[in-house]
């Protein structure tokens, strides 16, 4: 299969950064091709199946690579650099779904009461208030702002229910950054990201990463909380039909609560990013 440039010339996460335990020679898959993550001393190196060295960036707690030659840098998360943040890598969760479905689910809040019951949402607090979505042309990113939702336990550090405010940013076809009300530090945002490694069109590996203001909760509890949330999501993601994300309208029916998903699909289509997508014409 010949992959389109939009998918090839892009950065993807393939491992946690080497300050975390990394097996010295790790095989993985990227866009259907086998790649190896190696360590040259402290420096990670990524090798393609044919032995050629692939470009590497170590950023946001992960090792990123590309099968092609990206003309752009990997996106930045400036707020993640603020002093006092806990940086938490959560490992990988493999999901039998399109990488794009995994991102779209991350952008969705309406499922909280039903999939993350009594944690990120609960009945009867199911209403999704109006929020704002736009494609910021100057940076070519999708942004959703003023997203609010009532949550029984918004974070590991939350005591009781609060109305949480969210901002979603999609700077990359398979990555999203979530800015979320920070219970112990009002006025600041906690950062939770979803970095998705496309293994195949309908198989992916999700690398959640967090940059939090929380110096109380043990690391293991923070990771366990995220893993619980993503495992609940996996029970949905592996049972959507079709597995690929339909980019053309008609196959699925959005409402006002899905404006972020609508913008995300439109943005993917405009960029010609079809890996993991289903097009009517195809």
């Amino acid at each position: 299969m010949t992959l389109p440039a939009a998918a090839i010339d892009e950065w993807y996460p393939v491992a946690m950064a080497p300050d975390r335990p990394l097996r010295p020679d790790q095989e993985t898959t990227l866009l259907g091709e086998r790649v190896r993550v190696l360590l040259d001393g402290q420096e990670p190196r990524v090798e393609a199946n044919d032995g050629r060295n692939l470009p590497v960036i170590v950023r946001h707690g992960h090792v990123w690579t590309s099968l092609g030659a990206p003309k752009h840098d990997l996106f930045a998360i400036p707020e993640g650099e603020q002093p006092g943040r806990r940086l938490v890598e959560c490992g990988a969760i493999r999901v039998r779904c399109s990488p794009l479905r995994a991102v779209e689910n991350f952008l969705d809040i309406a499922h909280f009461p039903f999939v993350h019951t009594d944690i990120l949402g609960s009945e009867p607090h199911t209403e999704v208030n109006r929020y704002e979505v736009r494609i910021r042309e100057e940076v070519d990113e999708v942004w959703a702002t003023k997203v609010t939702f009532y949550q029984p336990q918004a974070a590991k550090s939350a005591q009781g229910g609060i109305t949480t405010e969210y901002m979603y940013r999609v700077p990359h076809p398979t990555c999203s950054v979530l800015y979320k009300t920070c219970p112990p530090r009002p006025g600041e945002w906690d950062i939770i990201t979803l970095f998705v490694q496309p293994l195949e069109e309908d198989l992916c590996q999700v690398w959640p990463w967090m940059a939090l203001f929380d110096d109380q909760t043990p690391q293991a509890d923070l990771i366990q909380f995220q893993q619980m949330i993503f495992l609940q999501d996996r029970s949905i993601l592996e049972n959507q039909i079709p597995r690929l994300l339909p980019l053309d309208p008609g196959m699925e029916m959005p409402t006002r609560a899905d404006l972020t998903s609508v913008a995300y699909r439109r943005w993917l289509k405009k960029r010609g990013y079809h890996y993991g997508a289903q097009l009517v014409a195809a």
Partner: peptide, 27 residues
């Protein structure tokens, strides 16, 4: 057909309340 018209979730994972079937994804 085992597919919610909204986001394609299998309706067989849903739950019955009274005379209605709810999709497990968004209810």
């Amino acid at each position: 057909v085992d597919r919610c018209p909204h986001r394609g979730m299998r309706l067989s994972h849903g739950f019955v309340r009274g005379e209605m079937l709810s999709c497990i994804y968004h209810g």
